[in-house]
Amino acid sequence: MTAPAQRGSQPGERVRTFAPDFLTELFRNPLEPGYADAAARRAEAGPQTGWRGTAPQVATALVLALVGFLLIVAYRQTVAEAPSRSQARSGLVTQIKQRETLTDRLQERADGLRVEVGQKRDAALTDTDAARLRDLEASTGFSRVRGDGIVVRVADAPTAVDPVTGKGQADDLGRVLDRDLQDIANGLWSAGAEAIAINGQRLTATSTIRAAGRAILVDFRPVTGPYEVSAIGPDQMERRFKDTPAARLLRQVSADHGMSYAVRSAGNLSLPAAGEPQLRYARPSPPPVPTPSGSGPSTSPPAPTGAEASSSPSGGGR
């Protein structure tokens, strides 16, 4: 900022004079002039006495006391509700474990009944038909199979500890997702796998791999890490799988974010049979109702009643 130019000593000569800029003035006089005036008036009048001097201190003390009281009330309420929340959580955990135990027991019973039915069926069929049926069950995933293959093992990246707070910091980029298991299964199918299981859950043509929160469900049954995808197939399956886009992506994620990823060959793998399929069928719609004479033919057939579309869950292993 410049001041207006002033005339010099000689006619026609102009001399420019410059005032200090804003930053220089700010550093020279950093205090607002109003504060200096208020301090000067307070020095002349002396300290305030009576209610004017004590009122700010009393108000500050009351505000601090009120804030402290609210914090104490909130803390006591939180502590009082903690046992009920812990009890409810433990009750839910107990129910989940009981239901899982009951489910496993029923699954074992179903497997035993399936073996018994298979034995009686084989006894009723000829040797050729029984062998053909066993081959079809093995290829579709509804019978136990055994053979050589590979195992793909993936696990979440280790939890990093914050040096300041001491708490663990989960890296979601290094966490195994349902999409990763889908890619692994699809890569194994494309590499020539004949049978695949994820943590003991056999995959079929209608299997689903989904996420529910941070849990992964295979055919609506939860699986926990580390995840092992076992596959039975030809000798070249391991080499073919390592060249798939899924394997390349997992190697990159493992190098960048610490996800555990390993592929190894395994001999004499045993994969269990899958559960009974929940197949759905479509029913034909009824024929159109004839219209009375003179009213013309019906242009739109009636809506089908009781028809159920045939579909299978999307996003499965194949």
Rank of each mutant, 00 (worst) to 15 (best):
P245L: 01
A160L: 14
G213K: 09
R210L: 07
L249E: 15
R264Y: 06
V229Y: 00
A255V: 13
L279Q: 09
V263M: 10
G213P: 06
A195V: 06
S230N: 10
D178A: 13
L217T: 01
S254Y: 03
I196F: 06
E228C: 08
G258K: 07
S230H: 11
P158H: 10
P234N: 03
V223M: 05
P277Q: 01
D219E: 11
L217G: 00
T159V: 13
A282D: 11
M259Y: 02
P234K: 05
V253E: 01
R240K: 15
E276P: 12
G168W: 01
L188D: 05
P163N: 05
G187V: 02
E228F: 07
M259Q: 07
S190D: 14
L250C: 03
S230R: 14
L217V: 03
P226K: 09
R210M: 09
D156A: 15
L181K: 06
R283N: 13
T208H: 00
V164N: 11
G225R: 14
A197K: 10
A212W: 00
L188C: 05
I196N: 11
T159N: 09
Q182L: 12
T208P: 00
R179K: 13
R202E: 05
N199I: 03
V161M: 07
P158N: 12
D171V: 04
S270P: 00
D172C: 00
A170E: 14
D235S: 13
F220A: 13
G187H: 03
A191N: 08
L279H: 06
A215M: 09
Q201I: 06
T206V: 13
S260E: 12
P284M: 09
A247W: 03
A185R: 10
A197D: 12
D256T: 15
L217P: 03
T204R: 09
P292E: 10
V154N: 01
A170R: 14
G233Q: 04
W189L: 06
P287A: 09
F220G: 08
G275N: 08
P226T: 06
A170P: 11
F220P: 00
P286G: 09
R175M: 02
I209H: 00
G258N: 03
L173D: 14
R248V: 00
A205L: 12
D235R: 14
H257K: 15
G275P: 04
G200H: 06
R179T: 14
W189Q: 07
G294F: 08
P287S: 09
L203T: 04
P287I: 03
G168Q: 05
W189G: 01
L271I: 01
D183S: 13
G233P: 06
A157R: 15
R280Q: 13
L250F: 01
P245F: 04
P288G: 05
R251N: 10
V164E: 09
Q201T: 11
L271T: 08
L269A: 08
Y261L: 04
R210V: 11
A185S: 15
A211F: 06
L249P: 08
V229N: 04
A185L: 10
E276S: 13
S260A: 15
R179Y: 12
A197Q: 11
G187D: 00
A157P: 14
A191W: 03
S207M: 05
G213W: 04
P286K: 14
Q201K: 10
V164A: 10
I216G: 03
T208I: 07
A282Q: 10
G275E: 06
E194Y: 02
A282W: 05
R251V: 07
